[in-house]
Structures are given as structure tokens and as C-alpha cells.
């Protein structure tokens, strides 16, 4: 059956968006250029700095950090994984990718967490953000590449832009969720003891919402990594670029190796961000505890000395 064609003009939705982006470029290009310059300078400096250090030293430093915030086994496995990437000759690409992910995630968190907090304060903002977040999460990420490239050209910055948009919904949503799930009695208690709005947020809501917020951070990092290959389609350097290159050459061996390197990076970052804020004991928390005990002891000794002297 042939559908009867309705004699209605097509709504110019796509055209409208294109017009809007072109308008942005024409009128606000100063801002975009500035943002673009800053971001590419920052990422460039980060990459150069990390590449200046010898890989072995860097792997050791990373492993110590991982050991401090997780445990020995995770640290050892991470060290082995990172050494494997170095051995495959993909170290510079790994560093570029790491910088892309870390900077993208940092921007997403700096925008996302406060947005989540503000949403708990304003019904209107919450209602406004909800469909936008749905949109951001379901729109195929390739689509972001077009305005990203139009606004920021080719390179790491449009990759960052696409990464941020793709990775920002979880921290927003989970911050909002975590805070709204704080029992009402707790908030009431803090207000009854004289807390102002900032104190309610800082001393009650954020600490109690921390596990949820950290789950958002973790998901944000994972989504950031999953954007690595897509971002390299508009010129972001790193492991994604190698994957694309091997795809175009049908080079299975290189494709597998670069893919594996991405998996290793993802696993390392996941394990690192998963434990934070869960209240689990880690070497770092034990060290802090030991230090506190030591200080307490010292203080008591001091007190005794003073008493004896008196």
C-alpha cells in the first residue's frame, strides 16, 4: 500500500539547528576561539608534561596512587597492564587518550555536579533539565561531532566538547538522586540545630549523597572512555586514532592491540574511581588514621609533660 502523501511542507527542524549553530559561529566566535585556545593549550601541556617523564617512572607513580586509594592487587595488575601498553609501543597514544578523558571528565564534573545540586533546589530547573538530559543520553554521539567540528574546528577540543556532552548526564542525575534520597529527618535535624542552607548542603546532603555522586563520577569516566574512538574521527589524537587507522587498513593486529590498550585504561580508571567515597578501608585511609592517632598521642604526652612540670 502506498501511503497518501500529505501536501504539507516539511518542518525545517534540522535547518533551524544549522542556522542556530551558524549564528553562534558568526556572532560568538571570539568566545569559542578563546575556549578552544585555552583547552588545547591545557591538554597540550598536560600531554607534553606526561610524555616528558619516562614511562617506567610514570607507571610506578600511577601504581602507587592506585595502591593508596584501592589495594595492592589492583595496583600490581594496573602496573602490569600499563607496562603491556608501553611494550606494544602505544604509550604516547595512551597518554593523549588519558589527557582527553581526564580533561573531558573534569569539565563534565565541574559543570555536572553543581547542576545536579541546583536541580534539587529548583523544581523548575529540574523540569527543564530532565528532557535535555534524556536528549543528551539518547542522541547518537556521532551527531555531536558535526556542531563540535563547526564550532571548534579539528583537533582535541571538539573531541573534548563531544566527550563532555556525552558524559555529563550521569553525574548530573546521580548527584540529584543522591541528594534527594537523603532522609528528610536528617535535613530537618540540621536545620533544627541552626544550620544555614550552605551548612545543610556541605555537612549533611553532600556527605550522605557521596556514594551516589561517586557512582556518577565512575559512570562519567566510563562514558568518557567510550567516546575516545568517536572523538578521534574529528582529529583527537590518541588510541582512538590508532583504532580508526587500523580499521581503514583492515590491520587486525594493530586494531586488537590498540583496542586492548583502551580496555586496560578503562579498567584502571574504573577500579580507581569505584572505591572512592564508599567508606572502604584503603592504605590511604589507614595512613590518615595512623597519623591522627600519632598526633593524639603526641598531644597527650605534651599534656602530661606540662602537668608534670607544673
Amino acid at each position: 500500500m502506498v501511503l497518501p502523501s500529505l501536501e504539507l511542507p516539511k518542518l525545517p527542524l534540522g535547518d533551524a539547528i544549522e542556522w542556530f549553530v551558524r549564528w553562534l559561529i558568526k556572532n560568538l566566535s571570539v568566545i569559542f576561539d578563546f575556549v578552544s585556545d585555552v583547552l588545547s593549550a591545557v591538554s597540550g601541556a598536560l600531554s607534553d608534561g606526561l610524555l616528558w617523564v619516562h614511562p617506567v617512572i610514570l607507571i610506578i607513580i600511577f601504581s602507587i596512587i592506585i595502591w593508596l586509594i584501592t589495594n595492592k592487587l589492583t595496583a600490581i595488575l594496573s602496573a602490569i597492564g600499563l607496562a603491556l601498553v608501553w611494550n606494544m609501543g602505544l604509550w604516547p597514544e595512551l597518554v593523549d587518550t588519558l589527557v582527553l578523558v581526564v580533561v573531558g571528565v573534569a569539565i563534565a564534573l565541574v559543570i555536572g555536579i553543581p547542576t545536579g545540586i541546583l536541580m534539587t533546589r529548583s523544581r523548575k530547573l529540574e523540569g527543564f533539565m530532565r528532557p535535555i538530559l534524556d536528549f543528551m543520553q539518547t542522541m547518537p554521539p556521532f551527531v555531536y561531532l558535526i556542531p563540535a567540528a563547526m564550532l571548534f574546528g579539528i583537533g582535541v577540543v571538539p573531541g573534548l566538547f563531544a566527550t563532555v556532552i556525552f558524559a555529563i548526564p550521569p553525574p548530573v542525575r546521580l548527584t540529584y538522586l543522591g541528594i534527594t534520597q537523603v532522609p528528610l529527618e536528617m535535613k530537618e535535624m540540621s536545620i533544627a540545630f541552626g544550620a544555614n542552607d550552605r551548612q545543610v548542603l556541605r555537612k549533611v546532603e553532600l556527605p550522605l549523597a557521596l556514594p551516589s555522586i561517586m557512582a556518577g563520577v565512575n559512570q562519567c569516566i566510563m562514558l568518557g572512555i567510550s567516546m575516545v574512538v568517536i572523538a578521534s574521527m574529528i582529529g583527537a589524537r590518541g588510541l582512538g586514532e590508532v583504532v580508526l587507522y587500523s580499521l581503514s587498513r583492515l590491520d587486525l593486529s594493530l586494531g586488537f592491540e590498540s583496542g586492548l590498550a583502551i580496555v586496560i585504561l578503562a579498567m584502571v580508571l574504573d577500579r580507581m574511581s569505584r572505591n572512592v567515597g564508599s567508606g572502604k578501608q584503603t592504605p590511604l585511609s589507614r595512613l590518615i588514621e595512623k597519623y591522627n592517632n600519632y598526633r593524639k598521642q603526641k598531644k597527650e604526652e605534651n599534656k602530661e609533660e606540662i602537668e608534670q612540670a607544673a
Partner: peptide, 27 residues
């Protein structure tokens, strides 16, 4: 004025001392 709650409303992430000191901390 201070208040005592039916379901205690103690902050689970703070030690007993820090819970008791909560009001003073706010002050």
C-alpha cells in the same frame, strides 16, 4: 532550643563524638 528525634537522626558518616558536636560545629 534543641531537639531530639524519634528516629534519632544521627549522621551515619560521623562518629558518635562528631554527631554530638554537630550543633556546636554549626555554631
Amino acid at each position: 532550643i534543641s531537639m531530639v528525634f524519634q528516629h534519632f537522626a544521627l549522621l551515619p558518616n560521623r562518629t558518635i563524638t562528631d554527631n554530638v558536636a554537630f550543633g556546636l560545629e554549626l555554631r
